Computed example of a mutant assay.
Amino acid sequence: MKKPLWFLSLTLLFVYSAGGLVFAQQPAPATAADKGVYQYGKAAYDGIGKTYLGREISQVMGHLGAAWLDRPEREQEERTDLLLEALNLKPTDVIADVGAGTGYFTFLMAPKVPQGKILAIDIENEMITDLNKTKNRSKITNVVPVLGTITDPKLAANSIDMALMIDAYHEFSHPREMMTNIVRALKTGGRVVLVEYRAEDPNVPIKPHHKMSIAQAKKEMKAVGLQLKSVYDKLPQQHVMIFQK
């Protein structure tokens, strides 16, 4: 099958999988704060050698792979229309799209929350620039790009109705710290929604460390005080896992 031009050029810089374009990455050295939370070892071909609750953290996709996020076939491959319905958004919701990237899903959600807002969070300045360009071009006023860090999404306490992570959580280099801050930001009754490729299904053509099982997600969310409330499994290849305090 003929590959698009952006794909051919990016293969010089990235390793491609059906789950995305990933940087080759080395594990960060352990710190005193990591003791007892993370373990370090030899990295798998799609991991970083840093393990959290039995799961090796995956390599990450960077801004140079942004074209893959906005590919025309994404809606049909991932059925983003069904995901949008599954979220049951309210007009006044304040949503943190953590790992928003270029804002593909951010700008799909924005019209659904006309009296609310979307906090589009990413850790790369290049992604924030893309988000602002799209916001200005589309004249959508209820999207607020936020530059976070690898440990902190920069959310105020008790400020959000939902934190959404679409194929992003498995790449967090500091999942305990990030989730602790996200949970702190939830309003009473707020939700955390993880959208992850199904690790239980060997037919999902995604690299192993870019998938997550329900059991693993439950274990990691329990560590920060969250319980699984429901799973929506009508997407072709992904779980939609909804957690609450």
Rank of each mutant, 00 (worst) to 15 (best):
Q115K: 14
P29A: 12
Q227D: 11
D167C: 03
A30P: 02
P91T: 14
V60G: 13
L235F: 08
D167A: 07
A96Y: 02
F23Y: 15
L108A: 14
Q227P: 00
A215E: 14
V37E: 07
A100L: 06
S213N: 05
G41V: 03
A44Q: 09
A30G: 05
V22P: 00
P27W: 03
G148V: 01
L64I: 10
P91S: 12
T129L: 15
G101P: 03
E220M: 11
G189C: 08
T31W: 06
E77M: 10
P72T: 15
G49H: 04
S58L: 00
S17G: 15
V224A: 05
N132H: 04
N125R: 15
G225K: 01
S9F: 14
V146R: 00
K187Q: 07
K135L: 05
E73M: 07
M241D: 07
M179E: 04
G65I: 14
M61K: 02
K90F: 04
L69M: 14
Y104G: 04
K35S: 11
R176F: 12
L10N: 08
G62N: 12
S213H: 08
S9H: 12
I242W: 01
G65T: 13
L53Q: 11
Y45H: 07
T188F: 10
Q76Y: 12
M241G: 01
R55V: 03
Q244G: 11
K112M: 08
I128V: 09
A215L: 14
M162C: 10
